[in-house]
Write a protein that binds this DNA or RNA. Structure first.
Lengths: 238, 238
DNA sequence: TTATGGGTTTACGTATACACTAATTGACAT
DNA sequence: ATGTCAATTAGTGTATACGTAAACCCATAA
């Protein structure tokens, strides 16, 4: 999983490997929700869409299987990973624990430069909250957490955290639109920053965990509201 | 990463997919150290070895790339992932934090049945220490930690922990042969079990982290001893 | 002796063809 | 009308073939 987004982070070079381009495209479409969970991914159909043969499509799908974004169903092809509400909550809880783990180490190890960079980012987010700019805050949020990852000075841990976070990106944005979640999110960031400034990694860790779990709870409320209004379609079942 | 060992955990059925069998075989060979880091993996050569064509071999290699066990080098094929000592220590530290995270949740959530199962396992390890049976203790150790993973009652977290642990399996066994590491390892397990029995997840977590970092330190000493005696070969470089 | 250039070769990346499994559909019997 | 069985078909899994790019080697010149 470590390398899943390494290539995606590189340029959009069309000269890259076809199988990698297909993998990145599918990754984006799944993470963004353009490909809904449970929908079948047919090899020839994807090959036609990307103007390629089945070979690179197959390799892309196999990589997505390992990264957990799609699931194989025997010989019946692959489907976009079906996330049950329980599994989504499990992933959010894991993400909360991982973030808590990272911020604890980061607090003890970050350089003054990294600290000032984080403070600068945090200050900049105030305007986004005032403007209720969800997209801007979502982008800031991503950078904010990535800065904490790298401040652990443990590249492997940073990759792991990044992977977990990436797999939740499809849900995070919807969560931010819930009520005044943005404002609360920034307040929680503020409390975390305070603990970091005091060099109290344990407190920063606890606050980060609570912060992430609050985000998960906001998402849960959001989902339950939608389930109440729309009957769940159950697009594909055994 | 999540699904990396899901298939490996299944039976050794030869009827399974050829690409999966190849992937599992290569995974085992890399994890066990049979394939040393830095060695090139040629597609046709592997195809001949497994009596298959290049197609399933390529798919297996692509999956190993995502799981981080091998690295691509432009068009020059893939090589077994080159682990620098720094990266290995990063992985051990991450593993330590992940284990600490798991045992904390597990302490709060495990059922009486899971607790008694863990106690039973721990008791059984005493005889292995007395007999200095490294292989048996290594196998026990794996089950012991997996029980803690599942006791988190968070399947996603359990998978993540399992993946991190699996990627270190090649080093863990050598580490156990260092001095009287086995006896100390069991003593540390004992302290962890005590905290679990008292329902003190925070203490269990701290002790687990220390336990894992001790294992990493033992490995480091072991590696440094070997580096001192043998000049590092540097089998393949840029 | 060393550096550079071109030719050769090897191996990857992709396309296409074939095999085989399993899902689907239709017919027939109950 | 419904259930079951067989035939068809659609789609995956694997093999093979082809194009291309990079590495290697050797010859030649400075």
């Amino acid at each position: 999983m470590a390398g899943l987004f390494k290539v995606a982070a590189e340029a959009e070079e069309d000269g890259g490997l076809l199988s990698d381009r297909i993998r990145n495209a599918l990754t984006d479409e799944i993470a963004s929700g353009a490909l809904v969970a449970g929908s079948a991914l047919e090899e020839q159909q994807l090959a036609d869409r990307f103007g390629a043969s089945r070979t690179p499509v197959r390799e892309a799908l196999r990589q997505l299987v390992v990264s957990g974004l799609v699931e194989v169903r025997g010989r019946r092809g692959v489907v976009v990973a079906r996330m049950t509400p329980e599994r989504i909550m499990d992933m959010f809880e894991t993400s909360a624990e991982v973030e808590a783990m990272c911020v604890r180490l980061a607090t003890y190890r970050m350089t003054p430069l990294e600290r000032s960079r984080l403070i600068e980012l945090h200050e900049g987010s105030r305007a986004m909250v005032e403007a209720s700019d969800v997209d801007a805050y979502d982008a800031f949020n991503r950078v904010f957490h990535e800065c904490i990852y790298s401040a652990t000075h443990n590249s492997f841990m940073a990759e792991q955290a990044q992977d977990v976070r990436a797999r939740l990106s499809a849900f995070r944005r919807t969560q931010l639109r819930q009520g005044d979640r943005i404002r609360k999110s920034r307040d929680e960031h503020d409390a975390i920053m305070q603990a970091i400034a005091e060099g109290d990694g344990e407190t920063a860790s606890r606050r980060m965990r609570a912060h992430m779990l609050n985000a998960a709870a906001a998402l849960r409320r959001y989902i339950e509201d939608r389930v109440r209004s729309v009957q769940s379609p159950e697009p594909d079942d055994v």
